[in-house]
Design a binder for these strands. Structure first.
Length: 270
DNA sequence: CCACGCTCCTGCGCGC
DNA sequence: TGCGCGCAGGAGCGTG
């Protein structure tokens, strides 16, 4: 499941071979993603040069001459750059062809999105209203504290809210809270300033560590027959229900919060 | 403004 | 061995 580090690794992986190239064709095999892929994309995109690729939250923003192609990988999406004549497989829904190369979106669960937007990012409903980037300069311990003082919900749900901070998914929410030694169920507004500072630090450290781990796989990222740059990672608590905490040995617990599995160590997290 | 539950979809793991 | 069920999950969106 692509979280922010995986999306950033994907961005770097596809930017290197594609930036500066001209789109020559678009193939839509299945336009029914989370929202319909615009049917006129095969008419819109060809002839336009890919100038740059940015990322905002988990959205990839492919900057073309006359607009931005917004991509989201959902839960199961992946992007690869391949030779154009590599046959498409099951769940390969969209191709953006760049001459002899192709950017191919595979997304078995089709929670992803491919959208076209002309105009400033802030004018798009999916991008307007997003909170700060966790690794950016707009995110701060003080700002996090301010955002949390209004929230009565559990801290885990708060940091997964894109209005508070973007890019913290279910896995890294549990991991960040473990590293900050905070119970996922504690009320967001009850975090003290020092606790907010710790959480701020650990959200960033958790994402940066994952990014570093992913960066090491970047070398192999674009092999035509390889899987994209998702990487194995050893988690402190995520997915480790009943197994010993790596710090103190207490059995890790799994509790459902907001319909999502939430893992924590009852001893280390208070 | 805030909180919560529903929804989209397929692959996988488990129980029988 | 095979079948069917339930769960997993990002995040927008409608409702209270």
């Amino acid at each position: 499941m692509p979280e922010l580090p995986e999306v950033e690794v994907t961005r770097r992986g596809i930017a290197a071979p594609l930036t500066g190239r001209v789109a020559t064709a678009v193939t839509l095999r299945n336009a029914q993603l989370r929202w319909p892929v615009p049917a006129d994309l095969p008419a819109t995109l060809p002839g336009q040069t890919l100038r740059d690729i940015d990322r905002r939250a988990k959205y990839l923003l492919l900057r073309f001459d006359r607009g931005t192609l917004i991509l989201h990988l959902g839960m199961s999406g992946s992007l690869r750059v391949l030779d154009r004549d590599v046959p498409a497989a099951t769940h390969d829904h969209v191709d953006i062809v760049f001459g002899d190369r192709v950017l191919r979106l595979r997304d078995p669960r089709r929670f992803g999105a491919v959208l076209w937007h002309e105009g400033a990012d802030a004018t798009h409903p999916l991008l307007a209203g997003l909170g700060p980037e966790p690794l950016g300069e707009d995110f701060s311990a003080a700002g996090l504290h301010a955002a949390l003082t209004r929230r009565q919900c559990a801290i885990k749900l708060a940091i997964m809210d894109s209005a508070v901070v973007v890019g913290v998914g279910n896995i890294y929410a549990s991991e960040s809270l473990f590293r900050a030694r905070l119970r996922p169920g504690m009320a967001a507004q009850r975090l003290t300033r020092p606790q907010c500072a710790r959480l701020y630090d650990e959200i960033r450290a958790t994402l940066r560590d994952a990014l570093d781990a992913g960066g090491s796989t970047l070398r192999d990222f674009m092999h035509a027959d390889g899987e994209p740059g998702y990487f194995q990672q050893s988690y402190f608590v995520y997915g480790r229900d009943g197994q010993p905490c790596r710090v103190c040995g207490t059995a890790v617990r799994n509790r459902r919060m907001g319909g999502r599995s939430t893992f924590f160590c009852p001893t280390c997290q208070r």
